[in-house]
Design a protein around this nucleic acid. Sequence first.
RNA 1: GCCCUCGUGGCCCAGUGGAUAGGGCGUCUGCCUCCGGAGCAGAAAGUCACAGGUUCGAAUCCUGUCGAGGGCGCCA
Length: 568
Amino acid sequence: MRFTVEDLVSQALSQAIEDGALPEDVPRDPMIERPRDPSHGDYASTVALRLAKAAGKPPREIAEAVASRIGESELVDSVEIAGPGFINIRLAPVALQAILADVRSAGQDFGRADVGEGRRVQVEFVSANPVGPMHVGHGRWAALGDSLARVLEHAGYDVEREFYINDAGVQMDVFAKSVAARYLELCGRDVEFAEEWYQGAYVTEIAREILEEEGERWADADSSEREAHFKEKAYAQVLAHLERVLLDVGVGFDVWFSEQTLHELADDGLSSVERSIEGLRASGHVYEEEGATWFRSTDYGDDKDRVLRKADGDHTYFAADVAYHADKFDRGFDLVVDLWGADHHGYVKRMEAAASALGHEGQLAIVIGQLVNLFRDGEVVRMSKRTGEMVTFEDLLDEVGADAARYFFLRRNTDQPLDFDITLAKERSAENPVYYVQYAHARISAILRKASGADTADTSVDIAETAAALVRDDAPLQLLTAPQELALMRKLGEASEVVEIAARQLAPYKLTRYAEELAGAFHQFYTECKVVSDDEELTAARLYVVDATRVALATVLDLCGVSAPERM
RNA sequence: GCCCUCGUGGCCCAGUGGAUAGGGCGUCUGCCUCCGGAGCAGAAAGUCACAGGUUCGAAUCCUGUCGAGGGCGCCA
């Protein structure tokens, strides 16, 4: 619909130039936008305001020149000039009714956009250290990353989800020592548990499982052998745990990428990390100083240069990250999206610098997510990793459920720290937006069940089948002219624009806002327009719009990773 | 000290350089003989932190000040 309007205005603009009403050298962009105030129409062009200077004429005169040349279209109801020179365009009811047919025939494809044009994009997120349970912050990245991936898919990208496993650092050795110490304790040995080791109760749980599986035979083994073995066992357990929790909330990864593999030597005797350093060196941005190897990231606007290889010969974490990103680009992605916690934001510049030096400027997008603060009954829930006192993502899921957790995490702009009120998320009331949206879907399902004459208590009734049998393709949509009906149709027509914006801005939270607006438009319609009535034709038409709304809500909720319940 | 992000009704937040700055919560007033009231309608409530600047037009862009959070290792 937007394209139609853009075409109409573009043609009028060209015509105006051809007729000599406007100079030849002005830009021909129709400048179409959605007015904030619905009373200003469905679309507005600001072309007259923007061309005023270049054309050397007052905006209203230009608006008149363009508006008067906008061709007749059955889809357009009115074209008006308003304010300082806006051209407001209102769609005809026919155009809105056409949206309904599109929604129903699109089904799961409702709202699809094509900004991606099939380009390959990788979204890397969560990437928690495999040394313990996920905290609630990881839950936010999980909800955000997965929905972002869904939106990008819906916007025409070819998407891959990846989890980067930080399994090469010293934290893995500390973790192994921690498990080993707990194991020895369980075997009745006297051990001193260092303060910097992992304190959480889950460490003991892992040790207990090893003890149950393998007995006490590791108690007297050589400590380095024991730790090496425990490292592998504990690592595998934690990873399996992470994967299971994530799958429980509908987040699945295509690739689990191990940092360790970047340090393994290939046939040429070089690791990926070393090869990527040489790659950077070839680009002319690497130098040696004070025994260390440096990346001159200041060439790309970083505050200072960064060490890749320390004087002791070890590589920095950053060097591994460079190798990792080089590997991503080698895999042929057109765009690489990283979701990082706010505590990593200091690394953004150097990483972007590295991507540029590797020849992939503009192909790396780093989304920084602010942290999550947990509240319960208005009080901050304090957490300490040192003492192991914390509410994990899994605890939160157990308490509030996957739908509420995902929706709450998604709802805020990532720039904003998120205050997550556990009490509120559990509440089944109007204060809780996820229920507001889901309720609309459940209400529609109830209407369809009733209209079909099905046994409303029969939970085996599939709502899509019910709708397919009930809704007439030849429903007289021209009967849908009530303000609430037109408003609902307008809202349905915005979907692909919302998907497009969410994809372009890497901002899936836009979907939750749209979902709430759509649900609101439906509730208003429901209040004013009785669907099932004695008027057979009007009932048919309203069932049509109701079912289109059902399809739309289900699709948008799916993009959010939230279920669309038929009953609540 | 330097860097990043953010300051929008009492509270929580939207707001692609455009029109009279929107929504939710809370407060107040209404609406169930009627398809699900987990809903709807209405009212009160704003110097968009402050000061300059750019622009035909600024909550939005630039500079400075104040305030909040985060980050500033040859750690991972």
